[in-house]
Design a protein around this nucleic acid. Structure first.
Length: 661
DNA sequence: ATAGGGTTAG
């Protein structure tokens, strides 16, 4: 322990030549690798210092800096810093050295813990500093920054919100650290909200604040317009864009396909006197790659070279992407050779770019030959190239080839992730290899990888194709349970098949999943499900469908529904159904009334409902015809003769009045 | 005495 402490102290002296004047430190010029024996040999030589550029000996005056006077306490503090850092019991070390260590020393330790990713120690030290009131703004700032690095934004927010002093809470360094921590942890929305709150509480943002938030726009939806807002606000506050901000802004443009904007910022940046570095070029080139603008890309690379910047692996790979997107496969191949020669093609990525481009352009055989060449050369691969080719074969309809490569992959690699599993699944489904499909699903289960939207989609489609409609339905149920909203087209066809195979309740269940999802659905689907429900005699469900979609269902379908319902539907709902279909603009005919009334006559205990219906009719312009009236009169003893006679006469008066008009 | 950015890639 002691020895190592001395050793490190010695190294520290190396970084601070001024310390070499102190006899405690043997040699400032001794290299780290020098052995202890050589060290001791040299000590005397250094004391004489005849070869040093600025020889000093005892007769010379001491250096003007204050370091000499404070040397003892300074050294004690350095030693204490080391002791704390190397201590196995942090709290006791802190207790022991409390008198020696100043706040800035503790901050040094804090930062060192951060640099070494010693998160627990960092947290413990910070707590101690807070409890012992040995803390400064810098401590907060550093600590919060490292909370971002350790991806612990909640702890950072907690620390920040526990700061009692409003002035410290609005300190720009602390605010910047908090925001940086949030942005780094992918919490852009929270950081934006907090930023506004901070401004309200008195924060004056600086370039770094804006730069940080701008960086958050790269991986975010509508990042470009958010970035523009930030830039505008920055300018409004009298701040100026610097080279860092331009770099970030270019990356935002590139990731949002704002090619022309990227170009114009690049030029603007140069006009303002900032010289672009390789990253600025890289981002702009990336923007060109999205649109395949190879002319501009080539120009840019020339421009870059003329400034003395050497295109690196990323630049060249991005240029390859430009050529691929632009459909310049000859040039792509040439560039790939160049990458190989430079040792930039040691992994499969550039090959995959070209293969994918070729396959998507319909040139699947050429893609395959690159794949084979690559395998022959023994290029490092983690299976991505297989995935590219399998997808390409599936897209092109070469299902056997896809399956072959899928099997090939499984024999060679044991690295499965969700995307790969989905790719394999797709290949096995298309090649109609049920056994492998099931094996893949078991694999997924085994690896505790939960199926994605795509997984379910592939499976459901496959099961439909296999006419395993109930299995497809169960899968869709599962998908829905996991919170995925199935695609309408898939639902629609499954509904159709389920209906055809007389799985009416299942068909309705699929319809319900779709209906309560967020997406809009095809208008014709309501009528389709209505027919299915009617053929399954699910009249209550049919009633709900009609009620909820009256204006989307044809008169013919309403008629079919109404007839079915009057014949066999729940007698208690007959009047409701009448009202609903009338409300939809459907003109109820005599046949329907007669059916309803016959049901009531068969069930005399429902006489109240019959009376209600008869009373309702004249208000809507309906009256029973003579044959129905006779039917009612014949059974009027069941319902109360007097009442029936009254109601019928009112109906008659109404219908006469209508006729005379 | 502390805070910032960017590149290829399912």
């Amino acid at each position: 322990m002691e020895l190592s402490a001395i050793g490190t102290g010695f190294n520290y002296a190396l970084t601070c030549p001024a310390q070499s004047y102190f006899p405690l430190i043997p040699s400032a010029s001794a290299p780290t690798t020098t052995t202890r024996r050589k060290n001791s040999q040299r000590t005397s030589a250094v004391t004489a210092t005849p070869l040093l550029k600025e020889p000093r000996n005892e007769s010379q005056p001491p250096p003007p800096s204050g370091q000499r006077r404070h040397s003892k306490s300074y050294l004690a503090r350095q030693a204490a810093i080391l002791e704390v850092q190397q201590s196995s019991d942090l709290d006791s070390a802190l207790q022991r050295l409390e008198g020696t260590l100043k706040v800035q020393d503790l901050n040094v330790i804090l930062r060192n813990f951060g640099k070494q990713s010693r998160w627990n120690d960092l947290s413990q030290l910070f707590d101690w500093m807070q409890q012992n009131d040995k803390i400064s703004v810098a401590s907060f700032s550093s600590c919060i920054k490292f909370m971002g690095k350790s991806l612990n934004p909640m702890r950072a927010l907690e620390i920040y919100s526990n700061i009692p002093d409003e002035a410290i809470k609005s300190n720009v360094f602390i605010c910047n650290s908090v925001l940086s921590c949030l942005v780094r942890s992918g919490k852009f929305d929270i950081s934006t909200k907090l930023f506004h709150k901070m401004k309200q509480n008195g924060l004056t943002p600086d370039v770094i604040t804006y730069s940080m938030l701008l960086a958050g726009c790269i991986k975010v939806k509508h990042g470009y317009s958010k970035a523009l807002d930030l830039v505008q606000e920055l300018k409004y506050n009298g701040l100026q864009m610097d080279s860092v901000m331009y770099g970030t802004l270019l990356a935002v443009c590139a990731s949002n396909n704002q090619c022309e904007e990227a170009e114009s910022y690049f030029n603007q940046m140069k006009d303002e006197g900032h010289s672009p570095n390789i990253f600025h070029y890289s981002s702009l080139l990336n923007a060109y790659s999205a649109v395949g603008n190879y002319r501009k890309a080539e120009e840019l690379v020339q421009d870059m070279k003329s400034l003395g910047l050497v295109p690196n692996k990323v630049i060249r790979t991005t240029l390859l992407k430009v050529y691929v997107r632009g459909g310049l496969f000859e040039k792509s191949r040439e560039l790939l050779l160049e990458l190989e020669a430079l040792g930039y093609a040691e992994d499969e990525m550039p090959y995959c770019l070209l293969m994918d481009g070729l396959a998507k352009a319909g040139n699947i055989n050429e893609a395959r030959s690159i794949f084979d060449e690559m395998k022959e050369k023994g290029v490092k691969s983690d299976g991505y190239s297989h995935s590219i080719m399998i997808s390409a074969y599936c897209r092109g309809g070469f299902f056997e080839e896809a399956k072959q490569l899928a099997k090939d992959f499984e024999a060679q690699y044991d690295k499965y992730d969700l995307v790969m599993l989905n790719t394999l699944l797709c290949a096995y489904c298309r090649a109609d290899d049920m056994e492998s499909v099931m094996q893949t699903m078991m694999k997924m289960d085994e690896l505790r990888i939960s199926p994605s939207y795509t997984t379910f989609h592939i499976l459901i489609k496959y099961f439909c194709k296999q006419k395993l409609y109930l299995l497809a339905y169960r899968t869709m149920e599962d998908m829905h349970r996991k919170g995925h909203q199935p695609q309408e087209e898939l639902c629609s066809s499954l509904i159709f098949y389920l209906g055809k195979t007389k799985a009416h309740p299942e068909a309705f269940s699929v319809y319900t999943m779709l209906k309560y999802g967020k997406r809009t659905m095809c208008k014709a689907l309501h009528e389709k499900i209505l027919h299915i429900l009617l053929s399954g005699q699910l009249l209550k469900d049919a009633y709900v469908v009609v009620k909820d979609n009256t204006e989307l269902i044809s008169q013919a379908a309403i008629k079919k529904f109404a007839n079915a319902f009057m014949k066999l539907g729940n007698i208690n709902m007959i009047n409701d159904v009448m009202k609903v279909i009338h409300g939809s603009g459907y003109k109820i005919d005599q046949e329907l009334f007669q059916m309803a009334i016959s049901r009531y006559i068969e069930n005399p205990e429902k006489k109240d409902l019959l009376l209600q219906l008869l009373k309702w009719m004249p208000g809507q312009g309906y009256a029973v015809d003579s044959s129905t009236r006779n039917l009612i009169l014949k059974n009027s003893h069941l319902f109360g003769c007097q009442l029936i006679a009254e109601i019928l006469s009112r109906q008659q008066m109404m219908s006469k009045a209508l006729k005379s008009h």
